[in-house]
Design a protein around this nucleic acid. Structure first.
Lengths: 325, 325
DNA sequence: CTGAAAGCGCTTACAG
DNA sequence: CTGAAAGCGCTTACAG
């Protein structure tokens, strides 16, 4: 930077100002500096800058799920890319860190605590994740994707309205004339699992216990749950499944059982993930607004970094009608 | 750090020494400092440290492939995790950065140039990747995974011996009595694509042009290529496919054509990726030593960071015999 | 083994 | 609009 200052015939202070938006820099100084930068090939030292500003200009995108299942989900890519883009507009780099194992979680926690990043975008569905506890205990800005069960008040988050999405779907099924509507739930230690079941009950009230079987978002669990559902409640005419992937498993079980979809049993999913349209028949499902979720997460994080208080954003979902229901 | 020094009754210099391995620190000073650190909850400021040491203690793991196909590959996860682990042992954090789009590549290039990281682990199969050119032009330590076509001499790399792997497989096929062995290649702008074809030719010499059809590592290309191969060379008795995923596509085409595997046509893959064992029949294939590749990449990068010259490591592959050939 | 001091490369009131 | 100067929080010869 001294070289640049010398080459441009100004002081380091002026070079710094020119570099940071050009406030209080004359046109002639600015252009001399620009030229000098180009000539010298100068690039700013981020560590020195961070030391002076107490900002790293980067945030961690922490993926804290044991299974790397999310990587197969195009929605996840959209989330990552959009967050990256939105933050890049504010000159903030997004660092992707995997924290699937306890060891990795410890590393990530230390990394964040050490002050390497200005904030954290946290993707972690399940409760009982130590990392969530640790991050919320520190004073690092954190924005979670999805409602962080047990930390609704000490961590900011952006989530789709799972409960209302479930209500929309079940109402739709009722509109279509289905009356004996079962459900395959998601894991009850995730907000999606809890809220989608709650939405189902909101509409249907007390259903026979045999109508509700639990799943864990996997395809295999959908297959097993559907099989059980057909035993427990053979006269069911529709099933609302807490995720598309699980619904795909349910479809397989129905096919094996010789039930037609949607003629014998209608199947409704949730997520509108890539698999939804690829199923046979294509799944009627609930779309989550990933684009908006991403930009809201970025916006919230920027605000937290600027010192604002925690807050939450709930975004509406959309019914996508295909052929399965 | 001043607080720690004061609390421990020593100077900052001594605290710093205690923090960095404890060379030239008396036992009593060390323990007083340890206690003070615990009491004050002191954590070192990485930016100040980096400014002083000119080391960021982190490296970027750059995934520069357009398709995020790699994420579905368990081999890739192993690569990432093992590299992370090996470098963590040296107190170096691995930052995962996706550089699939031109825009992202530009961002990553700037990030690296700015000096945010001490080095780069580069996963990028195809030639013509601007990022590879840019990184090799700078003086950043870079270790590529796989031979970087066109940059064999200006970028360090660790690769499996694709050519020899192909030779092993084709020799094995000959041992099993197959005589009319076709090949479905990988893309010729990747070292795997080029080298596996070369290995095939090493063993077989001049084969009829109709025996070789090109693929691009995808499943769909395997299906199409196999179909073409059956037209061009219907009397083929085996086919060596440049990747397992492509081989899965070839299996589908053979099934449609009513050819039994391996009775009518033997099929051999490459990679030993997860799909290999899941195929029907399970694929005979070539296993790449991902564990060693990872640790070698980490080792090479550490050496580069320490100022050593570029070098390359070629690791042996292993024949895995299953049922398809 | 230890402390005083210089230095890493920036930013930012402050005075002009 | 600009420069001189202090400060960000570490590390590391150097002298003792």
């Amino acid at each position: 930077m001294d070289d640049v200052a010398q080459a441009a015939g100004v002081s380091r202070g002026t070079v710094s100002r020119a570099l940071n938006g050009g406030r209080n820099v004359s046109g002639s100084a600015q252009s001399a500096i620009d030229k000098a930068i180009r000539r010298t090939g100068y690039v700013i030292n981020p560590h020195a800058r961070s030391l002076a500003t107490r900002r790293s200009m980067s945030v961690a995108f922490v993926l804290s799920e044991p299974q790397d299942r999310l990587f197969e989900d195009p929605n996840f890519h959209q989330l990552l890319h959009r967050c990256t883009q939105a933050l890049a507009d504010n000159d903030i780099t997004v660092l992707l860190t995997l924290a699937g194992t306890p060891e990795e979680r410890k590393r990530v926690s230390r990394f964040v605590t050490a002050g390497h990043v200005d904030g954290v975008l946290l993707v972690s569905a399940h409760t009982g994740n130590v990392l969530v506890d640790e991050l919320s205990a520190q004073d690092v800005p954190v924005v979670a994707c999805g409602r962080p069960l047990g930390h609704e008040h000490d961590i900011s988050y952006v989530a789709a309205d799972d409960r209302d999405g479930a209500r929309q779907m079940v109402n739709y099924l009722r509109t279509r004339g289905y009356r004996r509507i079962g459900m395959i739930t998601g894991p009850q230690d995730t907000s999606g699992g809890v809220d989608r079941l709650a939405g189902y009950r909101d509409v249907l009230g007390d259903v026979p216990p045999s109508f509700v079987v639990s799943g864990d978002y996997t395809q295999a669990s959908g297959d097993a749950a559907m099989t059980r559902l057909l035993e427990q409640a053979p006269d069911i005419d529709a099933v609302f499944v807490a995720s598309d992937l699980t619904a795909a498993g349910a479809l397989a079980a129905l096919r094996r059982a010789g039930r037609r979809v949607p003629e014998d049993v209608a199947v409704a999913g949730f997520d509108d993930s890539r698999i939804a349209a690829a199923c046979h028949p294509p799944l009627t499902t609930i779309r989550q607004p990933w684009g908006r979720i991403s930009t809201e997460m970025a916006r919230l994080l920027l605000r937290l970094i600027d010192g604002e208080e925690n807050s939450a954003v709930i975004l509406p979902t959309e019914l996508v009608i295909r052929e399965s229901a």
